[in-house]
Simulated assay, not measured.
Amino acid sequence: MSGTERHCVQESAAPRRRGRPRQITRERIVAAARSLAFDELTMQAVADVLGVDPKALNYHVGDREALRELVAVDAFAVELNRIDLSACGDWRDVLRRYATALRDATVTLGELVTYFRLPASGVGALEPVERVLQSLVDAGFSVPEAGHVLRLVSELGHAAGREAVFRSGSREHPYVADVSAALNTTAADDFPLLRRVVAVRDTAPDDGQQLDFNLDVLITGLAAKLSHAS
């Protein structure tokens, strides 16, 4: 047998090395989950996209509920990171734009909105927060006051987004439906003003009017507080 033949035999006899298993990370899990519709978002479906056993996801994601929460946080942070608050010099403009961005980011969650809670995590969500705080401190608010304002504005924006999601799935907001049901148990001439308010809320789209009103009241009060302190 020639040297070349012996070399070929040795090569063919050598066992093949198995490829390294694909590394699973939270980033890869989220990327795979993005390709799935909400009603398809399960551990098995994500594992199928990644080509791994569902048990391989357990280290990063405990169950389907945790998976959906992870995807909701990621979607929110990505959307919120799109805004640029650096061009807003006045703290009032910063608050308005931030609240509006929170509402819009919440709306993009759609059915995932029930799996998301403030505060949002992730660097993408923290950078706008820092900009809001800086604008408030620069305007003369103390750090604790800036923190309180941030929390209030965040809650207003997030609540407006959740309400928009609820209304998109049903013409009647669930809160309005509850009040209407309670009013139906009373005499027709009872609570006339509340009936008029419910009628308006039930038939007219919000179009951001409630959030604008909330921000007007908040900013007016904050400006008066700042003026009084100076």
Results as ranks from 00 to 15, higher is better:
V94Q: 03
R20I: 14
Q23K: 12
E79M: 04
P21S: 12
R82W: 05
Q23T: 15
H60W: 10
Y59C: 07
V71I: 11
V49A: 08
D90N: 11
L67K: 03
E69D: 13
L70H: 08
K55F: 11
S35A: 13
D39E: 11
G89Q: 07
K55Y: 12
E69S: 15
V94T: 08
R92T: 13
T25G: 14
P21E: 15
L36G: 05
A31N: 01
E69N: 12
A31P: 11
R28C: 14
V94F: 02
A77S: 14
E65I: 13
S35V: 10
L41E: 04
A87M: 08
P21G: 11
Y59T: 13
D74Q: 10
F38T: 03
A31S: 12
P21Q: 11
F76N: 04
Q44A: 05
V30T: 08
E27M: 02
L70N: 00
E27A: 14
D74H: 10
V49P: 01
T100Q: 05
A72E: 02
T100E: 11
D48W: 06
R68I: 07
M43N: 05
V73T: 06
T100W: 00
R34C: 09
A37T: 09
L67E: 01
D63V: 04
R97A: 04
W91G: 07
R28K: 14
L85R: 06
G19V: 11
L57V: 12
L85W: 09
D74Y: 01
R97V: 04
W91P: 10
V46H: 03
D84M: 07
L70S: 00
D63Q: 06
C88T: 04
E69L: 08
V49H: 11
L85I: 02
R64Y: 02
Y98A: 01
A66P: 13
R17C: 09
M43A: 08
T42R: 00
F76G: 00
W91K: 01
D53G: 01
T25P: 13
A72I: 12
D74E: 15
R26N: 13
A33P: 01
